[in-house]
Write a protein that binds this DNA or RNA. Structure first.
Lengths: 119, 119
DNA sequence: AATTTATACATAAGAATCTAATGTATTGTT
DNA sequence: AACAATACATTAGATTCTTATGTATAAATT
């Protein structure tokens, strides 16, 4: 059974906020651990968000007003749900558009589309 | 006259080495300043490599054996040409393939291809 | 002729963002 | 009973960038 390699960490830098915001756009409410598992699953283990990266990011999004939280107890264990605000919905669009544009530029710059092996 | 905005710096992080290596693959020999101008030109000012980012990157590539240098004097002014080594040619392929794969994953994860506004 | 802009290298302090490690605690599985 | 999974969080250290600074030559403008 072949294990897909993870991407080198430099690549993921700068896209984490966008990934998290976009997941929240599509799922209404998610908690931290759920986000790490969902990304892992959706990317066949190629992107694994570490907790040391995720939680500070979530806290920053909350501070910035892009998300609000809802603390829920499952038995005695705490869970913090994150929900997009209206402001956050705007931020998602901006971020995703910017990333899409950036990737377009990179494909051109690196002449990627012409070799069809990676489409 | 509309000035295209630059991408936020987080996005560029982690792709600089790949951009530089790929340019060297396509141009045989280039010097630092030339690289900054070429990237600026090819991306309509949307990616502007700063010297503080570029020179340390070039030095790291040399240290790692991906490039060798050729110091040339234009009159009294020095110019350091960078040339890919065989090792460097391998590294370019790996880096570009990884970035292409990563962008593919991101397009899927962020559901970008379905909205055709950014293709 | 003098000043400014462009060319061309380089380094260094500080910011941002990540990894890896550590910590606490509960719940499910073997 | 022991281990793995769930769920939060923080911190030291690494990496990679920005911004500022420095040095110097060549070309263009006033």
């Amino acid at each position: 059974m072949y294990i897909y390699p993870m991407y080198s960490s430099e690549l993921i830098k700068g896209t984490l906020k966008t990934i998290v915001l976009n997941l929240l756009k599509e799922n209404d409410r998610m908690y931290g651990y759920e986000i790490t598992q969902k990304v892992k699953e959706l990317t066949s283990n190629k992107i694994q968000i570490t907790e040391g990266a995720l939680y500070p990011t979530l806290h920053a999004l909350e501070k910035h007003g892009d998300v609000i939280t809802d603390k829920v107890y499952i038995g005695k264990r705490v869970r913090k749900y994150y929900i997009l605000t209206d402001q956050g919905k705007k931020t998602v669009k901006e971020r995703v558009n910017e990333l899409a544009d950036f990737m377009k530029t990179m494909r051109f710059l690196l002449d990627i589309d012409s070799s069809l092996s990676n489409v």
